[in-house]
Structure formats: structure tokens, C-alpha cells
């Protein structure tokens, strides 16, 4: 067995960007909502650009509560999948290199998701970050925070539980 060589930064960056792209762009529902992900190292920020189709209350106007819940849940699933992918990449497993929008890894499955609506979602872009508080062999617990103009003023937060994709799936 040969020792691991230090790879050129372009190779590492391309691998990470491609893995993230596959996780996000392969899912029609994420594309429909227009959610994208910014990456800084292993940290992801979900971005939901405002669009008229996301409105729930035209009189205010405000984001649909279902959109807010979906945005948090999408963020939780992508970040959890990304965390698993990151560990594989760091440990030298190159299966990630085979991913593309038509060939995805098994995804975690949502058991439950609770959304806490702190204030109404304004007709602006929204952002979210998720923290995997517990990730075991079978189950994971993920907390998500979402904000709009001001990082300190959350408009929603949520917690979800997930069944991890099993190795033999």
C-alpha cells in the first residue's frame, strides 16, 4: 500500500465542489425552490433567493410556512449527507468521485421535523445553516437556523431526526 500523497488544491477543490453539486442539483425539489449552497471548507450555508412562487400570504407579503419548513428540512438533509461525504473524502474513500446528479448516494430519511416560526419570512433572500448534533450509525439529530437580513435575528429554527443510510443500501 502506497502512502497518501498530498493532492494539488485544484483536485481537492474540484472533488468537494462536485460532491456538493451532485447532492444539491440531483434533487428536483431543491431546484424547484431555487436553493443553492455556499461552501467554505466543510461549512455550508443554504441560500433561498426570494421568488413570488414562495409567497404564502400575499397581503403582507410573507414566505409560505411550508416553504420555510421545506428550506430548513432541505438544509438539514444536505448538510447531514455532506457531513457523511466529507468524512469519506477525508478518509481517502474515492466513491464520492463517482457521484453526479444521475448517480447519488443513499440519502438520510427524515423521521420527524419540527419547525419553530419565530417571525414571518420577509420577501427577501433567506439563509440557513445546520448543525449535526448527533450522528450515530443508525440515527442522526440535526438543528437548523434560518435568517434573512440579520444573522442574529432568526426567522425560523428547526430540529429533525433522520435514519442514516445503511452501508449495504
Amino acid at each position: 500500500m502506497s502512502r497518501r500523497r498530498i493532492e494539488p488544491v485544484q483536485v481537492v477543490r474540484l472533488r468537494r465542489d462536485n460532491a456538493l453539486k451532485a447532492l444539491v442539483e440531483g434533487v428536483p425539489y431543491i431546484r424547484m425552490l431555487g436553493i443553492t449552497f455556499d461552501r467554505r471548507g466543510d461549512e455550508l450555508t443554504a441560500v433561498l433567493p426570494f421568488d413570488d412562487i414562495l409567497i404564502g400570504n400575499p397581503a403582507l407579503p410573507a414566505l409560505h410556512g411550508g416553504v420555510t419548513a421545506a428550506f430548513l428540512e432541505v438544509t438539514a438533509i444536505v448538510v447531514l449527507s455532506w457531513t457523511i461525504a466529507w468524512e469519506n473524502m477525508e478518509n481517502g474513500h474515492r466513491g464520492v468521485d463517482e457521484w453526479n446528479p444521475g448517480h447519488l448516494p443513499r440519502m438520510p430519511k427524515t423521521i420527524d421535523f419540527a419547525t419553530d416560526y419565530l417571525r414571518s419570512g420577509l420577501p427577501r433572500d433567506a439563509y440557513a445553516r445546520a448543525k449535526v448534533n448527533r450522528s450515530g450509525r443508525r440515527y442522526a439529530s440535526v438543528h437548523v437556523e434560518a435568517w434573512q437580513d440579520n444573522r442574529e435575528r432568526l426567522f425560523a429554527q428547526g430540529t429533525g431526526h433522520f435514519v442514516m443510510p445503511s452501508a449495504n443500501d
Binding site: 434533487v27 425539489y29 431543491i30 425552490l33 404564502g56 409560505h64 410556512g65 411550508g66 416553504v67 419548513a69 421545506a70 428550506f71 428540512e73 432541505v74 427524515t110 421535523f113 419547525t115
Partner: peptide, 13 residues
Amino acid sequence: VIHGGAVSALMDT
């Protein structure tokens, strides 16, 4: 299979 988020939107509405 439909995304859970879409089911959430239906349940919320």
C-alpha cells in the same frame, strides 16, 4: 418519491 418538504407545505396549508 416526493420530498418531505413538499409534504410539509401541504400540511401547513
